[in-house]
Computed example of a mutant assay.
Amino acid sequence: MSSKEVSDRFEYLQTLVTEFQDTDSEGGCFFSPPEAKEQVLANLANFAYDPRNAEHLRELQVPDLFLDMLTEENENLVEFGMGGLCNLSMDPECRDAIVRSDGVRLVTDCLSSRREETVLSAITALMNLSRPQAAGQDVLHCMLRFQQAQSPRLRNLASVFLQDCCGQERLKAEGKHTAVGIPLPTD
């Protein structure tokens, strides 16, 4: 990629971040501010999927922006923020930035979302972030509960998480679990 292409890519991502930050004002947007914020955040999350953008997104502090969205009341912002973090969690430097910012706890909190996409992104991000932290007792019980979900995607991803992050010895040592009270996502 030429230096001009790299520069253009950075400038475009910077424009998106600025647009997201400025969307609270009523600046004549086609969408209402909440819808505009959601659209811009969804675009940033999609750009986070491309590893060529990771360095730019780190420089623009987008991992922190995504983390901030996890505590919003707007479920769309939470879903898109979690999706962006999931995408960035593949990059080692982004992964470190997320962990340093208490991201494991914030991502773990998203396991209780009523939105399946948010939960799937949270599980995937936890698998990428830090296995010893991600596989705490509460997360283990949650994954055991998700194995009972009607959604095949949720059941299968929970099984992969348990296999990759917990191991058979730990699961056997856990014995009978009490994860029945953990709510499952509804969509």
Rank of each mutant, 00 (worst) to 15 (best):
G28Y: 00
F30A: 14
F31I: 04
F31A: 10
F31V: 01
S32M: 13
P33F: 08
P33S: 13
P33I: 11
P34K: 02
P34N: 08
E35D: 14
A36N: 12
K37E: 06
Q39I: 11
Q39F: 15
V40E: 03
L41P: 00
L41M: 10
A42N: 03
A42R: 13
A42C: 13
L44N: 07
A45H: 06
F47L: 03
F47R: 08
F47C: 05
F47G: 11
D50K: 04
D50I: 10
P51G: 09
P51N: 13
P51R: 12
R52Y: 10
N53Q: 15
N53D: 06
E55Q: 15
E55A: 15
E55K: 15
H56N: 03
H56Y: 11
H56S: 05
L57M: 14
R58C: 14
E59R: 13
E59V: 05
L60V: 02
L60T: 06
L60Q: 05
L60S: 09
L60C: 07
Q61W: 05
Q61Y: 05
Q61H: 07
V62L: 14
P63E: 14
P63N: 08
D64H: 15
D64G: 11
F66Q: 00
L67H: 06
D68L: 13
D68I: 07
M69H: 01
M69C: 13
M69S: 02
L70A: 08
T71V: 10
T71R: 05
T71G: 08
T71S: 11
E73F: 11
E73L: 08
N74R: 14
N74C: 12
N74F: 02
E75Q: 11
E75S: 09
N76I: 09
N76Q: 15
L77V: 00
V78H: 01
V78S: 07
V78R: 08
E79G: 03
E79M: 14
E79H: 06
F80K: 00
F80L: 08
G81I: 03
G81K: 04
M82I: 11
M82E: 04
M82C: 14
G83D: 12
G83C: 07
G84V: 03
G84N: 00
G84E: 00
L85I: 02
L85G: 03
C86P: 00
